[in-house]
Write a protein that binds this DNA or RNA. Structure first.
Length: 391
DNA sequence: CCCTCGATCAC
DNA sequence: CCTCATATCGAGGG
């Protein structure tokens, strides 16, 4: 049992972060085991020409040749030109099915479970383990073997006293690994991490930090908070400094969707406004379907337009009242699109991609609305420790 | 204080 | 050559 150094009566939490390894590509390997020893690339084809689009995920064999997520398919193909590589189109419904199967077990046994993404979750095992970090490996092994049996998937698990450390730990060794950081090890572990290992620090923020001379996690941990606030604002600065010290109080809580969106890339850039309307209609239907499945209403609609030169324009509207009307959605989407192009005086517009997002979501059954109200209330009463710090 | 928009992250 | 979905923050306007 690890006691909190500040208070002997409070034991540490014991948090898991589970990450399904190279997920989409691994799903394809399970479906077609003969692909296992070949470079395998799962692609998002955009349909503009036979090779347009990007790499979603690749297996480790493909990564050896420099293939990375987000890379244009064309580049990936050139890197694998002399290999017996496989390029497959993304198949979300299949991956979703495997994901649900895999996560089910964790969700059932954990004290609390939090969905983060199709290949990621957090789980609180504090009670389950009695906060005994020496039991963490057994539990992690147990979960890994259960997932292996039910789906044949491998995963990586990070264990720590909070979500932040668990997440960094799950990424520390991959694939098919377990990394456990007990409370006493946190400071040393976090100090030797790269600054970009901290969730929320990507290329841009790294540069921003470097411009103030901050190049290491330990430097960030002791950097003057006021100066950090000038650089990033109150919330982010506080989050970053806490993170650099391995501190994170955010609880594991059920996922609540806050946005539902779809964006499509057009086969050809559209210059004629008329031709956009049917696309907006089908996008409206798509997001509306998801909205209904989740029994939600929307209050804000966002239309985003990506132009030929990849510049993005967005336009949004916040309604007075929540709505569940698809007609309203379609009408507003149209007028927002027109607003967007007028606002930016795009006389000759070249639309490359267009999307609709609904936000400000709430449950539309009265019962749930009341429950949600109380959930919000209890959270707000306890902001300092509860508020989600994530960027 | 609310609304809107862009930036950033990361999948 | 350049996908898709989501979450959060901060700036700027009103």
């Amino acid at each position: 049992m690890f006691k909190n150094p500040k208070d002997n009566n409070i034991v540490s939490r014991l948090i898991f972060h589970l990450d399904l390894d190279y997920f989409y590509a691994q799903c394809e390997e399970i479906r077609s085991p003969e692909l296992r020893n070949h470079p395998l690339v799962v692609c998002v084809y955009s349909g503009r020409n036979p090779d347009s689009g990007v790499v979603s995920t690749s297996n480790y064999k493909a990564r050896e040749f420099g293939v990375k997520s987000g890379m244009p398919i064309k580049i990936a193909k050139s890197k694998l030109a002399n290999e017996d590589a496989e390029f497959l189109p993304i198949d979300m419904s299949y991956y979703n099915h495997l994901s649900i199967l895999a996560m089910e077990f964790v969700r059932k046994i954990a004290d609390a479970y939090e969905y983060v993404g199709i290949d990621e979750c957090y789980a609180d095992f504090s009670r389950y383990s009695g906060s005994d970090f020496s039991r963490a490996r057994k539990i992690a092994d147990f979960i890994k073997s259960e997932i292996k049996v039910s789906t044949n998937l491998t995963c990586s698990i990070g264990v720590g006293p909070n979500k932040l450390v668990a997440k960094i730990a799950s990424n520390f060794q991959k694939p098919d690994a377990i990394t456990i950081i007990n409370p006493q090890e946190v400071k040393a572990f976090i100090a030797r991490c790269d600054i970009e290992d901290i969730p929320g620090i990507g290329p841009k923020n790294r540069i921003k930090l470097e411009s103030s001379g901050i190049e290491s996690v330990s430097h960030l941990a002791k950097f003057d908070l006021f100066r950090l606030k000038e650089l990033f604002g109150y919330k982010i600065a506080t989050y970053l400094q806490n993170a650099a010290r391995g501190i994170d109080d955010t609880p594991i809580r059920p996922h609540v969707s806050k946005q539902i969106g779809r964006i499509v890339t057009l086969k050809n850039d559209v210059t004629n406004i008329e031709n956009i309307f049917p696309i907006l209609s089908s996008l409206s239907s798509l997001v509306y379907d998801t909205l209904m499945t989740r029994q939600l209403s929307f209050k804000t609609i966002i239309v985003r337009v990506v132009l030929h030169n990849l510049r993005q324009v967005t336009c949004s509207r916040n309604l007075k009242l929540s709505s569940t009307s698809i007609e309203e959605l379609q009408n507003i989407a149209r007028s927002l699109f027109l607003e967007a192009i007028h606002l930016h005086s795009l006389s000759f517009l070249d639309v490359r991609r267009i999307g609709i997002t609904l936000s400000d979501l709430s449950s539309y059954t009265g019962q749930n609305k009341i429950l949600q109200y109380f959930a919000e209330g209890s959270r707000n009463g306890n902001q300092e420790s509860n508020k989600n710090n994530k960027l």
